[in-house]
Design a binder for these strands. Structure first.
Lengths: 157, 157
DNA sequence: GCTTGACCTCAAGTCGCCTTGAGGTTGCAG
DNA sequence: CTGCAACCTCAAGGCGACTTGAGGTCAAGC
């Protein structure tokens, strides 16, 4: 039988954590280096992760899906306890931040979609009012109006 | 007065395109290298972009916001004419692909949010049924059930 | 006690998307 | 005709999030 390097008190060897989290060992070492998870060492210098690492890794992966960087995930994780499960209160605080994040991202996508729908309506034949070419978040620094199109000749009239 | 290197027939010098698109000249050269935009050269080897480049750049930026890579954006752009504005039909085809993309992304975010909301409800005290720790897209290859939590001790009982 | 696979460290490589820098040229205003 | 900003090329650098590789160690089973 192969070695099962998880010890009795439930601490996980890196391979075990990798298998359970779906991440590569190299990624887990990286996460540790980034301060996302912590480990203790055996006498032979091998990592042993507490079970809460599983929790934290899952958290990080979910955070990434929302568009957070590892650094941002770390900041969020720092508000949760390292060695035990979060209480409902602790969790709520973090989760609400996330929801705002998700909502913001969804909103952004929906605005983009709306602009795109408008574009379909106009078939981009009316570039002067086409939202796609007039995103509000770029080049707004040089005066009002659709500077993307200044002097641009609309194709259909 | 400073030099305006845009020529009479409306072709844009790289600096001009940069100013109007909000991108750095270096980025535009990169886009060109990637085949996203095309330019002609003056006798002095300077780039002159057709006005449609403006359109294409705006398209690419919007595409990025939806989560497309430059390569994917290029693929989409390849379905549009290089030298004139797209017709309503041409545009519709491309735009519909996008909308699917956006919808998919929004859906993904909403599912995540839902799982997160469930987590708030349970306060992560009931880890066995917590969706956050049981994303359906990872580690599903080793049998059914919540393998993330096998043997994980739920904190609250 | 030896084999074997899981583990260790550290440096370097990868990918996408650009930016920066060096060293040289073009082209418009004065 | 000169000065200077804007342009050119090519090579290298940078960031985030990892992976890969070399060279060596640890631990369980036979």
């Amino acid at each position: 039988m192969l070695a099962d390097m998880t010890d009795r008190d439930g601490r996980l060897a890196i391979g075990e954590l990798a298998a359970r989290s779906g991440l590569a060992p190299s990624a887990l070492r990286y996460y540790e280096e980034m301060g996302l998870i912590r480990s203790e060492r055996t006498t032979g210098n091998q990592r042993r992760y507490p079970r809460t690492a599983l929790r934290r890794v899952a958290f990080v992966r979910a955070a990434q899906r929302v568009g957070l960087s590892l650094e941002e995930a770390r900041a969020a994780l720092d508000r949760l306890p390292v060695d035990r499960a979060p209480s409902a209160t602790e969790w709520n605080a973090v989760a609400r931040t996330w929801q705002r994040r998700i909502d913001a991202r969804i909103g952004e996508l929906e605005r983009l979609k709306e602009r795109l729908t408008g574009c379909i309506g106009c078939g981009c034949l009316s570039l002067r009012k086409c939202g796609l070419y007039n995103p509000e978040d770029v080049a707004g620094s040089e005066g009002p109006g659709a500077r993307y199109l200044e002097g641009d000749a609309p194709p259909g009239g």
